[in-house]
């Protein structure tokens, strides 16, 4: 009697267990996983909209004034960076016969510094431009004294983005 019950129990188990497993199919879920690592490099982009051509004619200069000048606001400075706090500096690549004053106006991000007289040493022109994309007008004032006579020069302004 006991042996018969054991056989029946095992037979039931052999039928029910797989049947339950099969029915379970309709309600089960299966998973698969993938790990994706995303790395973003540091980017610092800086450019100007073009070259500046300026001629000092002396027109409008008052008699007795030794300094002749011309102003130009035709170009813009544009940047994009994903770095933290950054600043933009300007310097001359080499000494110039002219005095080149510059300042950035109406920056869409960051804080402009007061006008600088450009030298071969980098000076701050725009602060706090980290993780931004923007532009500003470059305002030049170029001067020369009358005693220099007729002069032609091509001062090259270097703009750089640096850690602030």
């Amino acid at each position: 009697m006991a042996a018969n019950l054991t056989y029946r129990s095992s037979r039931v188990a052999m039928v029910i267990l797989p049947a339950l497993l099969f029915v379970f199919q309709s309600g089960y879920s299966q998973t698969a996983a993938q790990t994706v690592t995303l790395q973003v490099s540091q980017i610092a982009l800086l450019q100007t909209s073009g070259a500046v051509s300026a001629t000092i004619t002396g027109a409008g200069t008052s008699a007795g004034v030794a300094t002749l000048s011309v102003a130009n606001q035709t170009t813009t400075l544009q940047w994009g960076t994903n770095r933290g706090t950054q600043k933009i500096t300007a310097r001359l690549s080499a000494a110039s016969k002219f005095q080149v004053y510059l300042q950035v106006l109406n920056p869409t991000a960051g804080v402009a510094t007061p006008q600088i007289l450009a030298t071969t040493t980098a000076q701050d022109i725009l602060l706090t431009v980290g993780r931004s994309q923007g532009s500003a007008t470059i305002s030049y004032t170029i001067q020369i004294t009358a005693d220099k006579g007729v002069v032609t020069d091509t001062p090259n302004i270097i703009f750089e983005m640096k850690n602030q």
Binding site: Q34, T35, V36, V40, I43, N82, S132
Partner: peptide
């Protein structure tokens, strides 16, 4: 599986902020 990764300038970079590590789980259900 076509992945597209993107970031903005404002979102920063991995050198300063670290990489993103996504654990992506796909599940099949009724």
């Amino acid at each position: 599986l076509a992945y597209k990764a993107a970031s903005t300038f404002a979102q920063g970079n991995s050198t300063e902020l670290g990489n993103d590590t996504f654990t992506i789980t796909y599940t099949q259900t009724a």
